[in-house]
Simulated assay, not measured.
Amino acid sequence: METKGAGVRVSCLGPEGTWSEFAVRSMFSRAEIAFCRGFREAIELAEAGSTEYCVLPVENSIEGPVTPVLDALTSTGLRIVAEKIVSVRQALLAVGTDIRRVVSHPQALAQCEGRIRAMFPNAEIISVSSTSAGAIEAANREDTAVVGPPWLAQKYGLRVIAQDMSDYRFNLTRFICLGRGRPPRTGRDKTSLTLVLRDDGPGSLHRLLTPFAERLINLSMVVSRPEKEKPWRYRFFFDLHGHEDDSAVRSALSDISSMVTEMKVIGSYPREDWPQTDA
């Protein structure tokens, strides 16, 4: 995939001003962005060909996987063609000083909850659909502050009350780009897949992981999600270092094929290291 291009159409979570827009701008030098109300809508635009790519947050270093995105990946025909790791620096923005409400996207609130509680112990913490939606609300209520990107201040007429709101030193979000391509091997790749175990009895997960360990394949993410129509049955999501065309990866996937009822490679794509500049 060419991650720098002109006139590329990309869908992402909106409205304007979110970290999703920042991720798109980081991946594409000039993009026509379709801002969507939810992850599913963003995927559907790319599936229908209205956009060429879809950029979604899939994992945060503090809060872990973005589970609605993982669930959506099971049913789409799109594949992951690139990833981007963004260093997220949340700010607290408002027009007033008597703050009784703090609003933002649930992930942003969770990343900063300790700091919010320390600053405003009696404030109501309210989840909204996006950081930009929270900024719009904060711009219209003097008792409301929003946690979000600092650039929202100028866009919505807010002032920055505090910078670096995160409770932890590092706050990184991994974004994935979905498209229809199949990036070639680079020698430094990642493969994402989802699968359902045939047998969930004792030792079944150990047997599943053994072929990867024997081939020294690093699993950088292992997440389980409930099967919606099968109570107490689970689907697994793996991120592994390597390309699906690597002989070791092909061999491991072949070994586990008899252990699963379903297996889908969501994509093999160049792997990005998290930015070290914050260290």
Rank of each mutant, 00 (worst) to 15 (best):
Gln111Tyr: 01
Ala118His: 12
Ala94Glu: 03
Ile125Ala: 09
Met119Val: 04
Glu52Ile: 01
Cys12Tyr: 01
Ile116His: 03
Val88Ser: 04
Ser29Arg: 09
Thr97Asn: 12
Arg117Thr: 03
Ala110Met: 11
Val81Gly: 02
Cys12Arg: 04
Gly114Thr: 13
Ile33Trp: 04
Leu56Thr: 00
Asp71Gln: 11
Glu142Arg: 14
Ser26Tyr: 04
Leu78Ser: 06
Pro68Ala: 12
Val128His: 07
Ile85Thr: 04
Ser127Cys: 11
Ala72Arg: 10
Arg100His: 14
Pro68Arg: 13
Glu59Tyr: 15
Val95Glu: 12
Thr97Arg: 09
Cys54Glu: 00
Gly49Thr: 06
Val88Phe: 07
Gly14Gln: 07
Asp98Ile: 05
Val24Ala: 10
Gly96Val: 11
Val55Phe: 00
Ile80Glu: 08
Ala46Ser: 07
Ala135Trp: 05
Ser132Ile: 01
Cys112Gly: 04
Ala46Asn: 02
Glu63Phe: 00
Thr131Glu: 15
Ile62Gln: 13
Ala118Asp: 12
Ser20Tyr: 00
Gln107Met: 05
Phe28Met: 14
Asp71Tyr: 02
Glu83Asn: 04
Ser104Gln: 05
Ala139Gln: 02
Thr131Phe: 06
Arg141Ile: 00
Ala48Val: 02
Arg79Gln: 14
Met119Asn: 11
Leu109Tyr: 01
Val103Ala: 15
Glu124Ile: 10
Gln107Ala: 06
Glu32Phe: 11
Ile33Asp: 06
Val88Asn: 07
Ser127Asn: 13
Ala91Ser: 15
Leu109Met: 02
Ala145Tyr: 05
Trp19Phe: 10
Glu142Asp: 14
Gly134Tyr: 03
Val81Gln: 00
Arg25Tyr: 00
Gly77Cys: 04
Arg89Pro: 00
Gly64Pro: 03
Arg141Asn: 14
Val102Tyr: 08
Val66Ser: 02
Ala108Tyr: 08
Ala145Thr: 02
Pro57Gly: 08
Gly96Gln: 08
Arg115Cys: 09
Val102Lys: 10
Ala110Glu: 13
